[in-house]
């Protein structure tokens, strides 16, 4: 995957629009899901994606090492998430919306399907309740399967800090999910 990325980045840097589109098509869903889980809001996720890929598009020529594209992309996306995350009231509104989601009823979009699923809804709500620095580490480790070293580079912190955030984040999530009795359900399935 990294090799394909490097090739596509090199082609895109030399002006190949097809390579650029392919590169974005490959990575758009990953960035979208990261932002969606970060904010629990499809519109916010789409906005983060737009800002991220616009920024990447503008600065692609400045990327010296094509092999570092993945880290660069996630760093850009996480930075935009941080910026947007500072709007606390917006987060609170989303949280309120999330809590008011009906458990039953027909879903109209994939996002609604995810939120409508009771289990996914609880996990999303729990993710929103833990501190952002723990949440982003959990998202990058659990869903993007990045190495501790890669996450540390993206967030510009030490590897030990990443592991500590993950440790505390998982513990906090466990407490929240235990309150919802979700872990018991999963354990007995």
């Amino acid at each position: 995957m990294d090799e394909i990325d490097s090739q596509l980045v090199e082609q895109a840097q030399s002006g190949d629009k097809r390579a650029l589109n392919r590169l974005f098509t490959l990575w758009y869903p990953r960035v979208y899901n990261l932002a969606f889980r970060y904010f629990a809001d499809p519109d916010q996720a789409a906005e983060i994606c737009q800002q991220t890929f616009l920024s990447i598009h503008k600065r692609l020529a400045q990327l010296r090492d094509p092999g570092s594209f993945k880290g660069w992309l996630f760093r850009t996306a996480i930075n935009y998430c941080h910026e947007e995350g500072r709007t606390i009231s917006r987060r609170a509104r989303h949280q309120e919306n999330l809590n008011n989601q009906p458990a039953n009823g027909l879903a109209q979009s994939p996002h609604e399907q995810v939120l409508r699923s009771e289990r996914a809804r609880i996990i999303m709500a729990a993710l929103q309740k833990i501190p952002a620095d723990q949440r982003e580490v959990i998202l990058m480790k659990e869903y993007e399967d990045l190495k501790f070293r890669e996450i540390a580079e993206i967030l510009d912190v030490s590897v030990n800090t990443v592991k500590s955030r993950l440790y505390y984040g998982l513990n906090a999530l466990r407490k929240l999910l235990t309150d919802c009795q979700l872990l018991n359900e999963l354990y007995h399935e």
Partner: peptide, 25 residues
């Protein structure tokens, strides 16, 4: 306990973004 929490997190599926916004140019 942490392994159970990870198992719970795996219940959150990927969502598919709208394909219309894929192409930059």
């Amino acid at each position: 306990a942490m392994q159970e929490t990870r198992m719970a997190l795996s219940a959150l599926p990927d969502v598919k973004p709208a394909p219309a916004v894929f192409a930059v140019e």
